[in-house]
């Protein structure tokens, strides 16, 4: 079996920063496993500017931000990158199994960093009653369809949830010629950054309904309309406030959940509600020598903070390998 000092799972900004920091701290033998065919993680589909203001004091797009790290990673001899490598199993004594086209590989690590990112919360998790037609997309999926494939999902959209991805997608769809009829947010305030509310909604005349929820989705084959209602402080529907918005597309942007199924498989403690590792300190897990960073550790708003904290995870792993703690 292949043996490595450190294996990093996930090649997004978190995994790259952790691998680079571990390398800088003297770890000689690092394997970085990424499921996709590129490094960069979710940044590859975030083509809008707004990344790197803290880290580089300049405004970059997602792919540009990622690229700075990809260049460094490929220059660093102590890091070996394996793409299209999907980790399917992790044990508490740090044995890793991963699939890649043509092989099932096994590797024994001395330390592991999990940088597997987040998945999006879905319509099913809220859950919204009604029918289940075509035209309902997690906002991140719509982002990928439009930005990476050039696929325009529909004509008229309503967005559920005012997280940053939803706000950015409101503007994106408006720019692509779709009519964005509303953003519906159950809380009293937007969940996204104030600058995104201003630049993505206000500038495009897209109404934001605070303290409102989608009471139903309707439509047989494709979405036809949504029923919206106002809610009280306990998020219960206020009677008599229902109104309808016709649309063929509904984007769901109701937050992210860390992907920690591997950590759970290894037997580490994972909070059942937030799906984050249970540990005394950021980046640690309940298993010694196993670390988690980036969106897998907690949901971050800014990629700059992901990079900063993930570098610490790399240093922690290096220290563990040197001193056993």
């Amino acid at each position: 079996m292949d043996e490595r000092e450190l294996v990093v799972v996930g090649g997004g900004p978190a995994g790259m920063a952790a691998a680079l920091a571990a390398g800088a701290a003297g770890v000689k033998d690092i394997l970085l496993l990424e499921r996709d065919q590129h490094l960069g993680g979710i940044l590859n589909q975030c083509i809008h500017p707004g990344f790197g203001l803290h880290r580089f004091k300049e405004e970059l797009t997602g792919p540009e931000y990622a690229d700075r790290f990809v260049k460094q990673v490929t220059k660093t001899p102590s890091i070996e990158v394996s793409l299209r490598s999907f980790v399917v199993k992790l044990t508490s004594n740090m044995k890793i199994s991963y699939l890649r086209p043509g092989a099932l590989e096994e590797v024994q690590a001395k330390s592991v960093i999990l940088a597997t990112g987040c998945r999006e919360r879905t319509r099913e998790m809220i859950p919204i009653p009604g029918t289940r037609p075509s035209g309902i997309y997690p906002a991140g999926l719509a982002q990928k369809m439009i930005n990476m494939e050039g696929w325009i999902p529909g004509k008229e959209a309503v967005i559920v949830g005012s997280g940053d991805i939803g706000l950015i997608m409101a503007r994106r769809m408006a720019l692509e010629g779709m009519k964005v009829k509303a953003v519906i947010e159950i809380q009293k305030q937007s969940r996204g950054l104030a600058r995104n509310v201003a630049q993505c909604l206000d500038d495009y005349g897209i109404p934001l309904y605070l303290s409102h929820k989608i009471a139903r989705i309707e439509g047989a084959d494709r979405v036809e309309k949504v029923v919206v209602a106002a809610v009280d402080d306990a998020f219960c529907e206020k009677p008599g406030t229902r109104f309808e918005l016709s649309c063929d597309t509904v984007l769901i942007s109701v937050g992210l959940i860390p992907e920690n199924e591997l950590l759970e498989m290894a037997g580490a403690q994972v909070d059942r509600k937030t799906n984050t590792p249970v540990a005394a300190e950021v980046n640690r897990t309940s298993i010694r020598g196993m670390f988690a960073c980036g969106n897998a550790c907690k949901v971050y708003d800014l990629v700059d903070s992901v990079t900063r904290d993930s570098e610490k995870a790399g240093q922690m792993a290096a220290q563990f390998l040197k001193e056993g703690k």
Binding site: M145, G150, W151, I152, D221, D248
Partner: peptide, 21 residues
């Protein structure tokens, strides 16, 4: 074509238009 792909048959298409760059 991508516009022809459906969730479960005619009327349930997923994509309205492909912007061919």
């Amino acid at each position: 074509t991508v516009e022809e792909i459906t969730k479960r048959g005619e009327g349930s298409e997923l994509v309205r238009e492909e912007r061919r760059h």
